[in-house]
Amino acid sequence: MSRVTRRIALGIGAAVTLALPLVLDSGQLSIYILLGLTAIVTVGLSMLMGYAGQVSLGQAAFYGIGAYTAGLLALHGWPPLIGLVAAPLAAALAALVLGVPLLRLRGHHLAFATLAMQLILLSIADNQAWMGGSIGLQGIPQLSLGSLEFDTDMSYAYVTWIALAGVVLTARNVIQSRPGRALRALATSEVAAESAGIPVGRYKLTVFALSAGFAGLAGGIYAFYLGYVSPGSFPILLSVGYVVMVVVGGLGTIWGALAGTAAVTLLVQLLNQLGTRDGVPGWLPSVLSYAVYAVLLIAVVLYLPRGIVPALVSLRRRADS
């Protein structure tokens, strides 16, 4: 794709996603917001997995840290804006601390360790009175900026859009740069990366913190939007879902993370709507989610091993030549 057609595609994409909230009904609007928040997390995870080659099966933990940080600060009377800024910072800080031992591990070991990290954090949240225990935090006030109150779904849709645009721009800028090339380099050969002068440990930690910061930002918006958070809002299923979305969309492309997130989220929503009709048992939706994740993952690995977006790109290239 030439620079010009890419610009045009980007412009159309931005215009359509900006116009959508105006025409969606309230149920669809909440899916739009959820989708945007999820994409903020998966763009960060895509940097971590697709570019730097490090897996995290605990990304929902950072989403949760952001949500709890925003919620707790707001409930203690801090202005919502402070909570929204603190959410990504707290998540990134947690990643910096936890990443020191975690990132010594690689591959499956790292995946299991991040999963364990999330389970531990969930059980802490479950048992701490100041975090609301298993009930969580309730009555979190709405987001506001001075006299500007964000009290409609529409306003949260635009807050989410702006946050996602900022995250995508940040990720793109970082990837196409000296530190971005360093991350891609260390993903395939840490030894050669070190011999080029790259401090591998520090770079891994930085991208881990960056991806956690994105997740924390999404969590912060989520807390204000829903008005309550509890340990149950951040199940392992959520972390698994993020990884599936990134892999389905295609590793090593930001657009892949966006496409994978949209495809998986919409499919799960569709099945949820079928699954929550009268007479259907309550456990069905989460079982369906797992089934969707499993089927998608297997289908992609078998038929589109590089993911949806890279497959489309090479299809286009072939059509062009």
């Binding site: 800028n173 970082v174 196409q176 740069s177 000296r178 530190p179 971005g180 090339r181 360093a182 891609r184 380099a185 993903a187 395939t188 050969s189 030894v191 050669a192 990366a193 011999s195 080029a196 002068g197 790259i198 930085t206 960056l210 090593g252």
Partner: peptide
């Protein structure tokens, strides 16, 4: 020891890491 998934040009550019300093924030 090559960086797979990167072009030849990008592989070579990584070599210039030590003579430059722009970090995550600058990028």
């Amino acid at each position: 020891r090559i960086f797979r998934g990167m072009t030849v040009g990008e592989n070579v550019m990584v070599g210039a890491h030590r003579t430059t300093s722009a970090g995550f924030t600058a990028a």
